[in-house]
Simulated assay, not measured.
Amino acid sequence: MTSDISYPIEGACQCGGVTYRLLRPAKLIAACHCRECQKLSTSAFSITAVVDATDVEFNGRMKEWQRKADSGNTIAAKFCPNCGNRIYHFNPDKPEEIRLKPTNLSDTRIIQPTIHIWVSEKQDWYTLPEGVTCYPKQP
């Protein structure tokens, strides 16, 4: 992680209807290569910052969407009802931990993935960085 990052870091959806403050550093930053994250990001992978729910302050109305994961767990997503920008994901059975979508932070230097997951579904054209922990599926 970049050591000169100061907290809190402000974040917002594309239209500004949902704003938030990340109060402390993430526990980890993951790049997920599963097909669902490829759909979400319209790219090769999606970035997630795993944080304690108490480390983020949200403002604005959000809608929720849910789906079943391969594990059988429920994955829920909170998003702006106006612009549709995803803000975070969470497991309803473990609401104390959220998976923030950090690309909408004002300071994106925290986006330095320490793990890559679901690399069994990664795009062939993407080369994984050397020295980063990789998992074929969910660890």
Rank of each mutant, 00 (worst) to 15 (best):
T42E: 14
G84N: 01
G16Q: 00
P25N: 11
A49T: 02
P92A: 06
A69M: 11
W65F: 15
D70W: 07
E36R: 07
R61C: 06
R61S: 05
A53Y: 02
E36W: 10
R24L: 00
R24G: 00
D52E: 12
T19M: 11
R35L: 13
I87Y: 04
E64H: 05
H89S: 08
H89R: 07
K94T: 15
V50F: 15
D93Q: 12
R24A: 01
I47R: 03
C83W: 00
L40V: 13
R67G: 04
C15I: 07
C13M: 01
N59E: 04
D70Y: 08
N59K: 09
H89V: 11
F90Q: 00
H33R: 02
V51T: 05
A77G: 12
I87L: 06
T54E: 04
K63A: 08
S41A: 12
A49E: 03
R86E: 08
P92R: 06
K94S: 12
M62L: 06
G60C: 03
L28C: 15
S71N: 04
L40S: 09
S43T: 05
R67K: 08
P95N: 03
D70G: 11
I29F: 03
D52K: 10
T48P: 04
M62E: 01
R67A: 07
K27C: 11
I47N: 05
W65N: 10
D93K: 11
N91C: 10
M62V: 04
A44G: 10
E57N: 10
V50G: 10
C80A: 02
N73C: 09
N82Y: 09
P92E: 02
M62A: 02
C32W: 08
K68E: 10
T74P: 06
F45Y: 15
F79Y: 09
Q66M: 07
D70S: 14
C34H: 02
G84P: 04
F58Q: 00
V51K: 06
I29C: 05
Y20V: 04
K63L: 08
P25L: 08
L28E: 15
G16H: 01
F45A: 11
F45M: 14
E64A: 07
G17K: 07
S41T: 08
Q38G: 11
T19V: 12
A12F: 09
N91P: 05
K27S: 13
K27Q: 14
S71Q: 06
F58R: 00
C15R: 01
G60W: 00
I87Q: 01
K63V: 09
S43H: 08
N73K: 11
A69S: 15
K27T: 14
G60I: 00
A49H: 04
Y88T: 00
L40Q: 07
L28R: 15
G84V: 06
N82L: 13
N73M: 10
H89F: 12
E96H: 13
P95R: 01
E57R: 14
E36S: 07
H89C: 05
E96Y: 10
T42L: 14
R86K: 09
D55Y: 01
C37G: 03
C34Y: 02
R21K: 15
M62G: 00
A44Y: 13
K94R: 14
